[in-house]
């Protein structure tokens, strides 16, 4: 665990709270892509199936392999799952009437199918858990595409939506730094699947970061994209 990794996780956690706060405070989810949020629930569900393994060890009092890092990861995984499911729940229940569904036109199969095929071909181990983990890594990299498409369609984002996008993009960018750090300091550390996907994910946010910083610097609250 290094400072980049922990900052990344906290930024990721902050992104959920920013989004939930925004939706609760404005009683609206306008400008937020339901499809992107739905993809995040799928990402975490596929990636964190090992929670059952940890849970299984705990209820059988097999604590030999449970370290501080396992407890930290388990705690965060449960938080991420709960937050992403709660967001999807909010968007489909009390805030449904404010949802931008008509403009949320991205075709999810265009990312789901390639990610599934890639996960079946390029994985570290041909097991169900490992393939689902790999699928989640690939899907997370591109899950923001419906959100970006909605942003381009709308042409602007309010202040909280921009902060949310910054937090989601920033977290993976910090993971890139974390991977460089770990590669330099841990002799056997290497995870090219996560590295490549993480790079793609951060690159997708590239344009957004640029406009975000320009707007923050100029002191504008709302982010308007050039038409």
């Amino acid at each position: 665990m290094n400072i980049f990794r922990i900052s990344a996780d906290l930024l990721h956690l902050a992104s959920f709270f920013i989004l939930i706060f925004k939706m609760k405070a404005t009683k609206s989810c306008k400008g937020i892509s339901f499809k992107t949020q739905l993809m995040y629930t799928l990402v975490f569900t596929c990636r964190y199936l090992d929670l059952f393994h940890v849970l299984g060890m705990m209820i059988t009092f097999n604590f030999a392999h449970i370290t501080g890092l396992t407890l930290y990861n388990t705690f965060m995984k449960i938080l991420f799952l709960a937050a992403s499911y709660y967001i999807v729940y909010l968007m489909r229940t009390e805030l449904k009437s404010t949802s931008d569904d008509a403009r949320d036109t991205f075709v999810l199969w265009h990312i789901l199918a390639p990610c599934a095929v890639l996960a079946l071909i390029f994985n570290a181990q041909f097991t169900i858990l490992e393939i689902l983990w790999t699928f989640s890594i690939y899907l997370e990299a591109v899950a923001v595409m419906p959100q970006l498409m909605l942003l381009i369609e709308t042409g602007e984002a309010d202040s909280l939506s921009s902060h949310y996008m910054f937090a989601v993009g920033g977290y993976r960018a910090l993971y890139l730094v974390n991977w460089v750090y770990r590669y330099a300091t841990e002799p056997y550390y290497s995870n090219w699947i996560a590295w490549i996907a993480g790079f793609v994910q951060t690159a997708l946010f590239g344009d957004f970061f640029y406009y975000y910083f320009v707007k923050i610097m100029s002191g504008d609250a709302a982010l308007k994209l050039p038409t």
Binding site: R5, D9, H12, R47, D50, H53, V54, H65, T67, L69, T70, N73, M76, K77, F80, W133, Y175, N178, A194
Partner: peptide
């Protein structure tokens, strides 16, 4: 035997 922690990141 413990491969669950192979992915020690979130």
């Amino acid at each position: 035997d413990e491969d669950f922690d192979d992915h020690d990141e979130l």
